[in-house]
């Protein structure tokens, strides 16, 4: 198990480094930041001085080394717009995005798995067909359009929930969160649903397909032949087997949830990292863009690592073969 964890952690570090190369090439090495940074009327000497100050006269690999060295120390540059370290600005927005993503994840798993299992147990019933129909909608309608529809129905027509913003926040374990106040919660519901719908549809379909497959297995029939209650057969024998693919997909999708949050945050004016990214792209605030990309990669890689650990705990076959290997 330890060997497995160490090896898996090594892979994670490699992934982060690879992404750093891409980010560096994509944002720093292409085009000349001096053109953007400096006054167009500057003299040749001033340009040369700035180029030297930014280290842009050094060979590319040295520049990359400096970028990486700074990045390891948490220095991803200073925002042009805010005049403060880019990482600090991102980190201020991180809790809002993580809160949104976590609530959306809980919604999509908490509703998606039971609905999917139910539809899988009774694939030809009315409920099963309705659930599948709904999941096709959640899947195929564009995310921003679903968001606007939610605003139209629940904020504009019914007036039940606010259309945007984060509402009142409170301190919880050192983080600003919305879900502990009624006002904050009412602001959180619509964007969380918006972000959850796509994943929920995906999880419903996955859970349903796996439930149907697992139910045909001999071990489910054998479990029934032992005289277990239908409840125990489903809750233990079926569920534990379908959780393996579900956990995998959650791992893959949680990262993209953070990415998808860009759309939801823009539609609902949710003050998270995604909205900051869009604003920064509009203002050409490169350090913030870089900080966003690096931090997102770090989050995704960490999540995937944790998911693999959970996965190996769920599936004894992996745990053992990896232990030996």
């Amino acid at each position: 198990m330890i060997v497995y964890l160490v090896r898996r952690a090594g892979q994670s570090v490699l992934a982060v480094v690879a992404m750093a190369v891409l980010v560096f090439l994509g944002v720093y090495a292409i085009g000349n930041p001096v053109d953007v940074l400096i006054n167009p009327e500057a003299t040749q000497a001033q340009i040369a001085a700035t180029t030297q100050r930014l280290g842009l006269d050094k060979p590319l690999w040295q520049q990359f080394g400096i970028f990486l060295g700074n990045a390891i120390h948490g220095d991803l540059g200073t925002s042009f717009v805010y005049g403060r370290p880019a990482l600090d600005i991102i980190l201020e927005r991180l809790p809002a995005t993580m809160e949104l993503a976590v609530v959306a994840l809980i919604l999509s798993v908490g509703l998606g798995v039971p609905l999917g299992v139910w539809a899988g147990l009774r694939p030809h019933g009315l409920a099963g067909k309705t659930i599948m129909g709904g999941s096709i909608l959640g899947f195929s309608l564009p995310n921003f359009w679903q968001g606007m529809l939610l605003i139209l129905v629940f904020a504009v027509l019914l007036g039940w929930l606010p259309a945007g913003g984060r509402g009142q926040t409170t301190e919880f374990m050192g983080l600003e969160v919305s879900f502990l106040t009624l006002d904050g919660l009412s602001h959180l519901i619509l964007p969380a649903i918006n972000l959850a719908l796509f994943k929920m549809s995906l999880i419903i379909r996955l859970a349903r397909a796996n439930t149907r497959e697992v139910c045909l297995q001999d071990y489910v029939k054998f479990a029934r032949a032992k005289g277990l209650s239908g409840r125990r057969v489903v809750m233990v024998h079926v569920l534990k087997n379908i959780m393996i693919p579900v956990v995998t997909i959650i791992g893959l999708e949680l990262g993209s949830m953070v990415a998808f949050a860009i759309v939801t945050e823009t539609v609902f004016a949710w003050p998270g990292m995604g909205k900051l990214l869009i604003d920064s792209i509009n203002l050409l605030d490169r350090p913030v863009i870089v900080a966003y990309l690096m931090l997102t990669v770090l989050i995704i890689v960490t999540i995937n690592f944790l998911v693999d650990v959970i996965y190996s705990l769920l599936d004894p076959r992996i745990r053992l073969s990896e232990m030996k290997g």
Binding site: D218, F222, G227, D315
Partner: peptide, 25 residues
């Protein structure tokens, strides 16, 4: 039936590789 299954009537299946749940001890 449920109270008879496993208690008064038991069954053994053909393929032992498939009859035990792979993820339960």
């Amino acid at each position: 039936l449920r109270h008879l299954r496993g208690k008064r009537i038991a069954m053994i299946f053909q393929d032992p590789m498939m009859t035990l749940n792979p993820v339960l001890r």
